[in-house]
Design a protein around this nucleic acid. Structure first.
Lengths: 194, 194, 194, 194
DNA sequence: AATGAATGAGTGTTCATTCAT
DNA sequence: CATGAATGAACACTCATTCAT
């Protein structure tokens, strides 16, 4: 039941937004009364928290697996990008909520999610930094900025990515990765100081 | 007065969000009554529209200037990225509202803003495509996807960019541009089909 | 100007009702600002009063003429009925307001109009009473009730009378008068106690 | 509770009018909060609809009974007139609202009530027409106009009828019926073509 | 004679939440 | 487990009216 409510609300939150969806809307969709809702959740915010938690925990789990593998920095970056693109494809509603409705959390709940988000990002930044140290990646750019760029590319895709488009999530991740690694300029490495 | 209201509301919308800010909040901030607000705006949505309109119109104007200059594709891309980073830096509140509160517009207003946003993006895509045709840019990647990547990097920065951070908006744009053009991989062009 | 406002507001009050028409609506229709309105009227209620006053004064004037003529009770009744039907036909908006928006007046203004309305009615009742005394009319019915019936027939017509219908106001008044005087029963005077 | 609200609001609507009575007024009168009101009604208009519906449905039911009896046209007309006078006496508030606040309904609701009102009227007109065909009633007057006259007499009474007056509703209906059937003129049938 | 800006009290409506049953 | 009734605080919006200019 609790899960039924979570799933129904995810659909509604994606379509209309968190604030624009009332508890009544959710109850109507599930076919229960408000009393039932408050038996399973203490507040609307807790429901939102549940969604955030599930999403970020899943991401962190998968990220950990990639990080623990014996891979080059480049391949780890590809792995994380694929992971995010996939999760946006397969979990569109949750992804949208995760990126757009963080603000609706408050206090401790907000802090908890922010911490986990930071962990996810810091992990990627670690990969980038180590890649620079080992010489696999250029070290004349800021590792933090590059991390934000990498995440920006994939995270932003929740705004436009269509699962039925001509490029799938994996193919997109590959092309993004190619750009990040080799650039799209043709004649050598312009912009690089010698 | 109208402008005073717009400015005060931008601040509040940025801090709390559009839905979370009441007309009363805005009036309290400005020091007028609700009647005064409705003398200048017919609805809360109209106020939001005003903010969106100003922001996107300004962006389109500046984009046009860059597009009309005699520049390489690479430089035009740098120009657009700088433009966006700058506007996020100097117009933080408007940028945040522009990216996060599109959903709150409805009907014709929504359509009008979406159209302008699409124009902005299509213009960038045009630069990328032409760069590929002239041989300045690699043509083994999808121009649409690359455009989204470029815009994703800078647009996403409204979520984390701090004007007081160690890297300024221009420096960030330059580093992002370098990544996009040359990649951050070191040993040649991995990922490229021969 | 004052008259222009009265006429425009009558049209609007008829279409939408007094409460449902705002001062702004009236000003828009006339093409002036609210300041101008309040130059000519001290309040919305005063405007309504003006309409009531004009209407009832006109009715009272015409009624007086009929009453002063040398006519039978029957003819006087026909005269008053024609007068009311005509005024509903020619002054549809004012009539509708007069019958439907009395309630919107308060205090002295309300009292003044009620007094005049009573005068109009009492005058008709006087005709009926005298008709009964002189033997022209049956005296086995209540004169007050008969007066209310006579006025009810014509006053109610503001709800349904269409100037373009197959029967004109004069023809309707005649048919109503015939019914009142002779009844619509055929075989003699049923219902009458011997 | 729903019924309590309906009854309290009927009283207030009669005294002050629909527009002039706020939801808050109703809630204060009943002793509940606005939330409770909106638990039972989706809008103020729905409450008004409820009142209209109850009133006209009751009227139609009673009318049908009269129509199905084996009665002369004259008696059926008396029956309908008594019915309306009675309902105005016993249900003064509802009657007043029914006659004066139709305008406040909109769209489908308005259409539904108008349809039922028309049915009531058409039924009376049917009695009049058949009375003319069978020769019970004069056929040198317009049946539609006569119907409107009959209804006008009784409907208008909601404006003046006092239950405590010297004439009761039944006695009034009888006197009105006598006038309609036999007229109040004394000397034969003036106005009749030979 | 008329404007334009502003007020202030009020309106209908929404909604997360509570709680006795 | 779950319901149905009810709360209370807030919300966007309206409008008759005022007044300095």
């Amino acid at each position: 039941m609790k899960d039924t409510i979570v799933r129904a609300s995810m659909k509604l939150f994606e379509e209309r937004g968190f604030r624009e969806t009332s508890i009544q809307d959710i109850c109507d969709a599930v076919g229960v009364t408000k009393g039932a809702f408050y038996y399973y959740f203490t507040s609307k915010e807790e429901l939102l928290m549940e969604i955030h938690q599930q999403y970020i925990d899943d991401l962190l789990n998968q990220e950990e697996k990639i990080l623990n593998e014996e891979l080059s920095a480049s391949d780890k970056i590809l792995g994380v990008m694929s992971l995010l693109m996939d999760s946006i494809r397969n979990n569109r509603a949750a992804a949208r909520i995760f990126f757009a409705e963080l603000r609706q959390l408050e206090g401790e709940r907000l802090a908890a999610i922010i911490t986990k988000r930071r962990t996810f990002r810091t992990n990627v930044e670690g990969v980038v930094r180590r890649g620079m140290e080992t010489g696999e990646l250029r070290d004349d750019v800021d590792p933090g900025a590059m991390t934000m760029a990498i995440l920006g590319i994939v995270n932003w895709s929740y705004q436009w990515f269509q699962p039925n488009g001509k490029l799938g999530s994996l193919e997109l991740a590959r092309q993004f990765h190619r750009m990040i690694m080799s650039g799209i300029g043709k004649g050598g490495r312009e912009g690089l100081k010698p």
